[in-house]
Structure formats: structure tokens, C-alpha cells
Design a protein around this nucleic acid. Structure first.
Lengths: 124, 124
DNA sequence: TGAATATATGAGCATTTGTTCATAAATTCA
DNA sequence: TGAATTTATGAACAAATGCTCATATATTCA
């Protein structure tokens, strides 16, 4: 059953060849999976999550954000850079003040769904 | 304007007190924000994301998963532990084989939404 | 122009993370 | 019971991460 060739490539034993075949057929492409995990990686820090929650309510400048989060301007600025590189926030400059806002309405929806998930979990 | 007291607590300057007040009023509680970021943190690794995508299609055992992902059984098992601790997957034991599946249908939906986001992003 | 202010950034550092390797635990079957 | 097999786990280590500190950049205003 061609199993031996498989085992040369990958040392792990395969128990359910049919399952494996079906899943391989229907698995999403590698590239979008990496992009999705990258998106989640950026979401997955509490400072960035708090920034996103704030900007989901209103556009804010850096120093107001750092007051809100009670964090250094530098720390907030570093994280805003990460968020901007990931195209999660955008900014607009007005004089020396830089205003940040969410770049996409999807973001808020994904967060809302995640909130649903964590708050509906007191059954377990 | 009570600003000086604020500055004793937090050294950052506040430019827009009204914005800050409104955002503070409407910000979600700290606890659920941490839980959401923790959920995303777990999603935010490509190995775990691939496992989730696979289990979103079908229940699978550890060795089939490690064949699918072309990764060590140990590495997969470690990640499954992380996923189980986060209540993202559940397992069922049948003899020596342990079958894993998604613990919640929310997970698939959140991923689907994230896929939409990353694939709809060629407008730039 | 020069001081003040808002933001950005690079280096350094402690912490966290994901994998590997070796091995333990649990189960099946002869 | 003992060999084989599937999964789980602990230690170790390299890589990534998030913050701090110092400082650069950009803009305003007197």
C-alpha cells in the first residue's frame, strides 16, 4: 500500500490512511494558514489586544493610549509599529500628534467573536 | 483640570481628556481582554494553527497528525497539550490511540473569519 | 532659530516559546 | 508476563519577544 515509501520520508507511523488522505485533500493551502497564524500571533499579546480594543472604540493618539494603558510611550509606540506592519492599524498625522485607528472593520468582528467565546465558557 | 495628579501616577501627557474618558468608560473589562489575547496567543503559532485546521475537518490521532504535518510525534504532542489546556481541543482514548478533535464550533468560525481577512487583503 | 513636545527607533536584557532528545506511562497482543 | 506500540512529559537549548533606556526625528511656537 505504498506505506513504506511514506515511512522513508516521515518516520511516524500512519494508522488511518483514509483519514490522512481526506484531510490532505481538504486542508487549506499552507500560505493562508501561515498568514492567519501570523495575524493571531499579533493579536495574542495583551498590550496589543488592549490597544486594539481601545481603537475599536475611537481613534487615539500615542500619548493618550499610553495614559490609558498606563504604559511607557516607548512601549506603546513599539507595539503600534508591530500593529501597523501587520496592517491592523493605520495612522494619520496632525502636527506632531499621530492618531491611530483600526485599519479594517474585520478586526473588530474577529475580536467580538473571540469575546463571545471566552465569555460563554463558564459551562465547562 | 486635575491633570497634575494624573501626571504623578502616569508620567505620560494626556492630550485629549474627553477621548480618554469616553474610551475608559466603554473599554471592556481587563479580565476578558486578557483571556481573548491568551486565546489568540495559542492560535498564533503555525503548528497549532495547522493542527486546528486539520481537526476542523476531522477527528485525528496523534501519529496521523504528525504524519500530516511532517513533524515529530513529540512536538505534536506538546502542542496538543497546549491546545487542550486552552480548551481548544478535546480528546478521546480508544486503546492506545488518542483521538483529538476541536472542543468548540466557535473555533472554526473564528478561523474562517481570519481566513476571510487575510485572503481579502490584496486590495492594499 | 531655539526650546518644547510628540513620536519613533536601536541596543540591551530578561523572559517566553517551540523544538529535540531521551524516556516514562499506558495499552495491546502473543 | 513481556515485547511492541502509541502517547505524554521533562530537561535543555536556541530563537523570538516585549520592555526599558537613551536618543533621534519631526513639528510647533515664541
Amino acid at each position: 500500500m505504498g506505506q513504506k515509501e511514506n515511512m522513508e520520508i516521515c518516520e511516524s507511523t500512519v494508522i488511518h490512511e483514509d483519514v490522512l488522505r481526506r484531510v490532505r485533500e481538504r486542508m487549506p493551502e499552507e500560505e493562508p494558514v501561515y498568514e492567519v497564524s501570523e495575524l493571531f500571533r499579533v493579536f495574542g499579546d495583551s498590550t496589543r489586544a488592549r490597544i486594539i480594543c481601545a481603537l475599536n472604540l475611537e481613534e487615539m493618539c500615542v500619548c493618550d493610549l499610553s495614559a490609558l494603558l498606563n504604559m511607557t510611550q516607548s512601549a506603546v509606540s513599539h507595539q503600534l509599529r508591530v500593529l501597523k506592519a501587520a496592517r491592523i492599524v493605520k495612522n494619520r498625522k496632525a502636527g506632531r500628534v499621530v492618531y491611530y485607528s483600526l485599519d479594517d472593520e474585520h478586526i473588530g468582528k474577529i475580536f467580538a467573536m473571540a469575546f463571545d467565546h471566552v465569555t460563554e465558557e463558564e459551562e465547562g
